[in-house]
Design a protein around this nucleic acid. Sequence first.
DNA 1: GAATTAATGCGACAAAGGTACAATAATAAT
DNA 2: ATTATTATTGTACCTTTGTCGCATTAATTC
Lengths: 136, 136
Amino acid sequence: MDRQRRNTRTKQLIMAILSDSSSALCYEDFDRQLSGKMDKATVYRILQGFCEDGKVHKIADENGKTYYALCHHCRSGNHDDNHLHFRCIRCRTISCIYEPLVIPPLPAGYRMMDANCLVSGHCPNCFNEIAGYEKK
Amino acid sequence: MDRQRRNTRTKQLIMAILSDSSSALCYEDFDRQLSGKMDKATVYRILQGFCEDGKVHKIADENGKTYYALCHHCRSGNHDDNHLHFRCIRCRTISCIYEPLVIPPLPAGYRMMDANCLVSGHCPNCFNEIAGYEKK
DNA sequence: GAATTAATGCGACAAAGGTACAATAATAAT
DNA sequence: ATTATTATTGTACCTTTGTCGCATTAATTC
């Protein structure tokens, strides 16, 4: 029998922060928005729980730091987050890109079960700002 | 003027380990093959240097642990490792897949500069073993 | 062989995250 | 509404992965 989840204030807060954000968030982002009022362990445990429930997925950046973003089409224990993630090298934000991701056929014998892609470059916002500066 | 590299015994050993391996290696792998004789900091620094020189590239796994593999077409300061990396969920090895990787066109405004893909599943070896067991 | 300076070993340190356990607070049961 | 149950939280501490400063060692150059 599964352990029952309880709908606590902290979980609601964290879920609200996730819903309000257009980009993926790391622990520090949550801590800042929670004004440091919640313990580190609690925040990590809640995010971990959301992942187990299929509500949130993890994204590992180039340095291994973990970011969290809401899932759109996942079910508990059956994540389907094989979409692209984009890291802007200027503003550092990571966001989900929901274009269908086509992984090329793998060499004979490989069986793919999951894909995790982090593309980096300039996001539209930053690209515009850079272009703006150049024109001046 | 760049700081000159010196061709030390340790560097040769680490390069030999990399050349002999068909999969990407993490610090522990190097440490084991060096029988724990080299200091942690030294090993990390050498690997870091190889990366700067375009000889080696880093791969971050799902948990942020770093793996290292030889580069094939990179120049110093100009890495071109946008190939797929494959993590076998059974034997845990990570290997480079040199099939051309086609990133789908990004939404308007995004400028891609680099891509990092970690696909996971079963490698040919493990898939065969699993299939073998099922038939018995 | 001597001088120069890159590389190494050592110890301490840092960031990201997890764990054990007692205290607290959602739910369920009465 | 009150009590019982047990999920959740806070606290303190630990682990893993990796970095830094600095004195010592060893490749290169002269």
